[in-house]
């Protein structure tokens, strides 16, 4: 997948009247499946393109993206073994990842 696919998908969703958000990996520690800069685009129907992990945290990122689309306020999410959420949506690989989620408007 190319760098631009998630960005282009956001433009297409917005042109079709959808709200859209962009999630980006900003920092990783230890082993993590996707490097800093990895993008995932999400729309208001919870459809998504791209990834910020190997599928471990995408569900939680979609939930956050829906909130961000509703409020317009960006959010930074931390995932990892030390996180309380680890039991639910932690990374099986034992790494840590920080994800920035912003609305495009």
């Amino acid at each position: 997948m190319s760098d631009t696919q998630a960005l282009d998908q956001i433009s297409a969703w917005r042109a079709a009247g959808h709200k859209a958000a962009l999630a980006t990996v900003v920092q990783t520690w230890g082993s993590s499946p996707r490097p800093a800069g990895s993008h995932m685009a999400i729309n208001d129907k919870s459809e998504f393109v791209g990834s910020v992990s190997g599928g471990c945290i995408e569900g939680a990122v979609i939930d956050a993206a829906r909130e961000v689309m509703a409020t317009g306020q960006p959010k930074t999410l931390d995932f990892g073994v030390t996180n309380e959420m680890a039991w639910d949506v932690g990374l099986a690989c034992g790494g840590k990842v920080r994800v920035f989620v912003e609305a495009v408007e």
Binding site: D3, T4, L7, D8, I10, S11, R14, L22, T24, V26, P74, T76, F100, E102, A103, V104, E105
Partner: peptide, 27 residues
């Protein structure tokens, strides 16, 4: 992200111009 910033970014990528989007993740 503002949609006009996204369009500008996409135009630079399409024109093969290396660039960076810089974000203050707190604001």
């Amino acid at each position: 992200m503002k949609s006009n910033l996204l369009s500008d970014l996409q135009a630079r990528i399409a024109a093969h111009h290396p660039c960076a989007l810089v974000t203050d993740t707190t604001t």
